[in-house]
Design a protein around this nucleic acid. Structure first.
Lengths: 207, 207, 207, 207
DNA sequence: CATGAATGAGAATTCATTCAT
DNA sequence: GATGAATGAATTCTCATTCAT
């Protein structure tokens, strides 16, 4: 009947978005019910409609909410990189940041959602495309430079992307998302280091 | 003897499983309805219950149906490999086969299902664990041999797995499943070759 | 030869349509709930969706069901009228039939619906337009003949329509629909006779 | 002294009643929402509850508001009629006034509401009964006089009412409310004149 | 006076499932 | 084997209404 007390100023909207993100990730869009999201957020199902026009919009807002922060963050990071960073150093920083971001709890939630709903929802897929493209565009110049300066072999940039970023995505999906025991305990740093020492080394022009 | 009937009795069960696999992949478990699956299979929804006790069981059967064939296939392939295959040759063959299998239409359907439903369904996740473990166990001996013989540097086998298989999984997810434009047109062979030439090269003990 | 079924199979569809017509008339479209219609028809609300795709379609079907029969009936009646029927006789017959039809229970239900929902639903309004136009087209030739033969004064056919049919519609709405006490007990025949003796008489060319 | 405020304080109550009348007429009681009425009136839904205790009461007030003015107006009109007005003249004036009133925009709104909700709401029906009875009581003396003086035939007053007022109600409903094309363009004056010249003529005792 | 925030009570609709035929 | 008919349980969404501010 009456609104609940509000000693601490509750940011209902944010609470709802948080609950929604978690439940959409855990159960999938269809099986996460309004009632459950509302309960987690400490409101009634009807209240969701005060803040969002539909479940669909709530879903979109929840996904956008967190993910929009990634590429800017990454861009900021690289922007403050020393201007004379050599290829490996810069690439290492990008990979490390990306993997750190993808290991964050909320990113994991978004990732689950993107993998589950992305293939059939253009707007969700687009979110992912934007991330991938963002990483791609950040990596490309460094790699191009390295090729131009003869540090690494000329190679299709798409392959470089796949070789460098693939192990990381794979780690996140297999180790974190599906929690396959075989990869348990593998650290982010170990993966990035291995990529730098091995894949990047394999790319070097060393006769 | 009587000739074969002109209209060979349709294998309803198989037709249902096929329709189910496709729809579960396309729409997800919750949003694929019995009615639609039945329609695609040319029967009524009630008929599904003649063949399967529940939607849940139909789902499991549809997923199991195809995926069970992978590891045996792979195992057979490697079994007939020349006993003296060097590391790179054997690894290349395994990677090529795995990527070929993951590119098959039905495998893509299963992959979508596993990524979407796996995180919250132990029995689906297990299917995936079995596949990964299968590849892992096939790769491991060759790599161990190569390490033992000093061909490649000693390194955590989990990292080798991530470095070698990561680019492939990444390719399938980004290029095929999410159809990110940046990877459009990248061929399986190009990826495998790049992994062999670069990552594997980077693993070599060459000073 | 074939034994008849013990329980004559209930025509669910018809039962639902009947219940729907009644409740839509009594409560209006918005306030007649599926649950109540279903209950009246002896089924569950879900069953409505087995027979009709939506409440909206059920509504349309219920209205169409009965009303479609009016104009054909009227047309048949006039068709079998004696070829030499004089104007007043034919007009009387048409008016009598129309009033009889509008006094039928089901027609009253439809009338309530048309008056309540017609102004804002084109397809419902059209139903009414068709009825009115039907009566109009049946009356017109007789009146035109009477004018041509000098029996009645030349006059705008729309006015004739309004003068002849108006008292009847008015009777139905005020006496039956709104049940205004002032008109209680007024019979159909009295109204038709009065129209014939008075209005029609007033139309005559007699100086 | 202070000059009048430039923005005279808006009469919220009246604005709300206006908006309510229009929306109740357009959409029906159930489908006109408080939110929409409030929006049209330039306030929030909660504000409605400052002026009216419930939607139901707002509805009643909106309907009463306008309609209450009719019979008094009519009564005033006839009161100032020349005492020696002959039947036809007086009747003509009454019919003309009534039709003019029923053609007013607001009356049309009320009419729609009365026809839609009247049959199931006693208090709304009563409003209508009062109008009808009002007209009836105004017409009656003139007709009685005309009968007494032998100007027109003796006839059931209810029939006179139906014959005289029916064409007008019919015009309003068919032409204005349901906007049936067949009556498009028919003027009020033409209808009243036709009633006077035809129906009233038919009532005359003229051998 | 008026509103923003919230809710409880329903509403239509969907769907897996059952069962007599 | 297979279906038509039907249902119960759930789900999204709407809306009149309330109340502290």
């Amino acid at each position: 009947m009456s609104p609940r007390p509000k000693n601490p100023p509750p940011d209902r909207r944010a609470e709802i978005l948080d609950a929604a993100l978690r439940l959409f990730a855990e159960k999938g869009y269809a099986e996460a019910t309004n009632a459950e999201i509302a309960k987690e957020a400490g409101v009634t199902a009807a209240a969701l409609y005060y803040y969002f026009p539909s479940k669909e919009e709530l879903f979109r807002a929840a996904v956008r909410q967190h993910i929009g922060r990634f590429v800017p963050t990454l861009r900021a990071l690289t922007a403050q990189a020393p201007a004379d960073a050599s290829g490996p150093e810069a690439v290492g920083m990008i990979l490390r940041s990306a993997l750190a971001f993808f290991t964050e709890e909320k990113t994991q939630l978004v990732l689950r959602i993107v993998l589950a709903e992305g293939p059939r929802r253009p707007e969700i897929r687009q979110i992912w495309i934007d991330q991938i493209t963002g990483i791609f565009e950040l990596l490309a110049p460094f790699v191009m430079n390295a090729i131009a300066s003869g540090q690494i072999r000329p190679i299709d940039p798409r392959l470089i992307f796949v070789l460098l970023q693939g192990p990381m995505l794979s780690t996140v999906i297999i180790r974190d998302l599906l929690q396959v025991p075989a990869l348990e305990g593998l650290t982010n740093d170990a993966v990035v280091d291995a990529v730098l020492e091995t894949t990047l080394a394999g790319l070097r022009t060393d006769g």
